[in-house]
Amino acid sequence: MMPVHAHEETPATMDGEPARESVIAEAGARRLPRRAVLRIAAGASALVLTGRALDIFPMLERVAASDLPASGSAETGAAHQWAFVIDLRRCDGCGACTKGCQKMHFLASDQEWIKVYPMVDAIGGEYHLPVLCQMCERAPCVQVCPVTATYHLPDGPIVVDQSICIGCRMCMAACPYGVRTFNWRPGPEVPSGATHDGPLFQAPQRLGTVGKCDACAHETREGRLPACVTSCAMEAIYLGDFVTDMATNGRATVGLSQFLRENDVYRLKEHLGTEPRVYYVAGHGQRVEF
């Protein structure tokens, strides 16, 4: 309204530049609706962006909101919710799990999806710590992937779709446990019958992408145990399932929650709030005879 009014008035004030003022007024009259549209659009997008921005802190929301039990809380309706229990009292650091895993996934010998670290405990005792993907329920690697190439399966494992991965290695930066490996070189030959493409099982590994422990998702689907579990002669690695509340190392089967409760389990870097699904039975640096 106002600009139009001004437009009618300007011709009266003649002091050499009448045309300019009326041009401004006219422009103002024309611009007004566009400004309004822009303002509405800006407001709307600000709202949307604020909503999206909150998504950036999903961990914060979930940490604040949840009283997560030490069980798979990911309520996906999947038939299983996988976890691992590693009995450090039994692990002798032989590395058979690493080799079994490499054989299963056709990995080069320098690619270790389960690493066995020699460790020293608080009182100088030595023990061995096998570290595979911790299957974090709040996984930093999933959060930072720019192209959603790495994601949770409904039953817990985190996999990489190597047909999408751009190889930026941001997930390797984000993973607090250092379990991700990069395919710097072409992988070893895979027998022709065994090649497979897909996030559940990728053989051979694709050059220039990130690979990691997939908790042998392709095996557990078929009712078989992960390679690290079956290859551990010490029977130190258990595959657990929160849905059926059972865990097995291939020979013995135990009740998962009871086993966790009775054995003073701990998880790696709990303070980071990543909610890993790999539980360790403390080894106190001693081999337990059995």
């Binding site: 959060q143 720019p146 192209v147 941001m170």
Partner: peptide, 10 residues
């Protein structure tokens, strides 16, 4: 084409 807006890379 398939951005994850949570990612700093994006």
């Amino acid at each position: 084409f398939q951005p994850n807006f949570e990612s700093p890379i994006v």
